[in-house]
């Protein structure tokens, strides 16, 4: 099953992650995302979490891993539209200290 959707425009790659992010799903997301990140070499990567209802610390590992990959190719990473429960775990880990988090419209 497809775990990600991509939009590439003006050197910006939007990676929309679909469904739960746990240890089981993280691998497929990582493989799909890395393939397109390395293929397109964008300047900006937007991790769109609007379709993620559940994320545990495996998601933190996934985000930090993509952040490291982005550093290698000189790209910036931003997280967009995390659900409140996802935002809590991002904040717990202090992710906002290394990348921007843009919240979506409040529900």
């Amino acid at each position: 099953m497809e775990k990600t959707r991509f939009i590439y425009e003006d050197a910006t790659l939007t990676v929309k992650i679909l469904g739960d992010i746990d240890h089981h799903n993280a691998r497929a997301v990582r493989e799909e995302a890395d393939k397109i990140i390395l293929g397109r070499k964008p300047r900006l990567i937007l991790l769109d979490l609007s379709a993620v209802e559940f994320m545990d610390s495996s998601g933190l590992g996934l985000i930090l891993g993509r952040y490291n990959l982005a550093e290698e190719i000189g790209a910036e990473v931003k997280i967009i539209k995390p659900a409140p429960s996802v935002l809590r775990i991002l904040e717990l880990a202090g992710i906002e200290r290394i990348m921007k988090i843009e919240e979506g419209a409040k529900k």
Binding site: D56, S57, L60, G61, L64, I89, L92, A93
Partner: peptide, 14 residues
Amino acid sequence: SGERSGMGFAVMST
């Protein structure tokens, strides 16, 4: 592997 955050217990206790 660089893909585990080491935050599991921190999440559980928080």
